[in-house]
């Protein structure tokens, strides 16, 4: 099994609901709390497992805004695990989830240096490294209804831009979405082989934004407006 997320960049509206739901669930989860520094002060900052950035792709008028949520990619070749000197960082053999054992971490930041995706953040209050757990304390919880055994970010996404599943199973919904929509990995040249995939925006006919072309009726209205003074 290779559990991970597939994120649809075509429909992500950039509302940050996934990040908020993640923070809410994980603040009291296995690696919680996710400390905030000056949450109501002048310089609010804190630990988040999920961050959303916004980009403009292409040049105006042929441009598009792309909202880009990023969390741990649960890489197959996770250097964050290899470089960890204490053994606090580990990758589960059963489902491929990368986790940090909070009781072993010494807070040296080395795993964060090794991660190209910025998925790891040091919590200053506990002095340990924290990261996305893929809601490991939700997805196997037998007390929850089957449809709720998914990461908090996936459940909350109002645009259904996030999918959770087994990327190893070619018949899973996530694998099929990756196949059909041309899903891709980030920074493939670094060779981390991330599990999470991104679905590119669909190709749409461009909406004309330059010179407005007037139809026959609009031309008549323009003429009347010129003749009749109001």
């Amino acid at each position: 099994m290779r559990l991970g997320l597939v994120i649809d960049l075509d429909v992500c509206v950039g509302c940050h609901a996934c990040a908020v739901a993640c923070k809410e669930w994980n603040a009291s989860g296995t690696t919680g709390p996710l400390s905030d520094y000056q949450p109501y002060g002048a310089e609010p900052s804190g630990v988040w497992f999920n961050r959303i950035r916004h980009y403009e792709v292409g040049e105006y008028p042929d441009s598009k805004t792309v909202n880009f949520p990023m969390s741990c990619m649960h890489c197959e070749d996770a250097d964050c695990v290899t470089v960890c000197p204490t053994g606090a960082s580990y990758k589960r053999t059963g489902d491929g989830i990368v986790l940090v054992d909070q009781n072993r971490c010494m807070g040296c930041n080395y795993c964060a240096w090794a991660c190209p995706y910025g998925a790891r953040e040091l919590d200053r209050s506990s002095g340990t490294m924290k990261k996305c757990t893929l809601c490991v304390d939700r997805i196997y919880d037998q007390a929850l209804p089957v449809e709720e055994r998914q990461p908090a970010c996936v459940l909350t996404c109002p645009a259904h831009a996030r999918m959770f599943g087994d990327l190893d199973d070619p018949q899973s919904a996530v694998s099929m979405a990756v196949r059909e929509r041309g899903g891709y990995q980030l920074l493939p040249e670094l060779g981390y082989n991330p599990t999470n995939h991104y679905l590119p925006p669909r190709k749409h006919k461009p909406i004309p934004t330059g010179e407005v072309v007037y139809g026959a009726w609009a031309k008549v209205k323009k003429l009347v407006n010129r003749v009749v003074k109001r």
Binding site: E43, V57, P200
Partner: peptide, 29 residues
């Protein structure tokens, strides 16, 4: 040499520009 904002976001056929980092102040990163 090496990685660019294009290989990072996967949009390799157009210019990519950051609009918003999504955080109001600094972060660990």
């Amino acid at each position: 040499y090496g990685s660019t904002i294009n290989t990072a976001t996967g949009f390799t056929r157009a210019r990519v520009r950051l609009l918003d980092t999504g955080h109001t102040h600094d972060t660990f990163l």
